[in-house]
Amino acid sequence: MKTLLFAAGATVATLLLAACASGPRLSEAEYRQMAIDTIKRDFQAKGQAKHERVTQDEVQQACNSYLNNPPNELMVKLTSAQLAAVKLPADGKYLGDWKEGEKIAQSGRGFTWSDKADEPAGGNCYNCHQIGPQETSFGTIGPSLLAYGKTRGNSPEIQKYTYSKIFNAKAFNLCSEMPRFGHAGALNEQQIKHLVALLLDPASPVNK
């Protein structure tokens, strides 16, 4: 009986060992730390892309550490801080020229190591969003923005929200996939105003 039990125990142990050998050895957090250490060691500055870019800021760290779903308290704290840092236009005006906005929305240039650092960045908008009805080559990572203004109206509140969302999407949804264009210094005040006009101006093709 003892022998039988021992044999059964040994079989279970062998099975467990086999299962452990084929599964991950460490926790998700430990592998994440290994990934960060390896990235810091194995990446090098090139062009305008300096090495410091691989270091997380507090928003990135919260999203990375909790797989884009941080605990509520942390999320509220960081989201509020991002919102508080949104720089609204000093003149209180949000609408630029939608035609200029369309050009910015079309452009995907900027911030790669092969881009010149002193040339203005584009908005990359069509990479992820449907926007104007005439542009059929659009991405689907973000929601469609077709008829954005038509369905939301053009009130000062909507203008302010739209400006702020482009300036810093993380002020509303901490782990949004959308870049923080104003916060990152990719788009300036005037460029963001043009994009707001593209989305909200009743004359923009987006709202026709």
Binding site: P24, A35, I39
Partner: peptide, 17 residues
């Protein structure tokens, strides 16, 4: 493999990608 998986999920840089 697991470190690669974590690398694929790691967000950083000016666009948080």
């Amino acid at each position: 493999f697991e470190t690669g998986k974590a690398t694929a999920a790691y967000r950083a840089g000016p666009y948080d990608f």
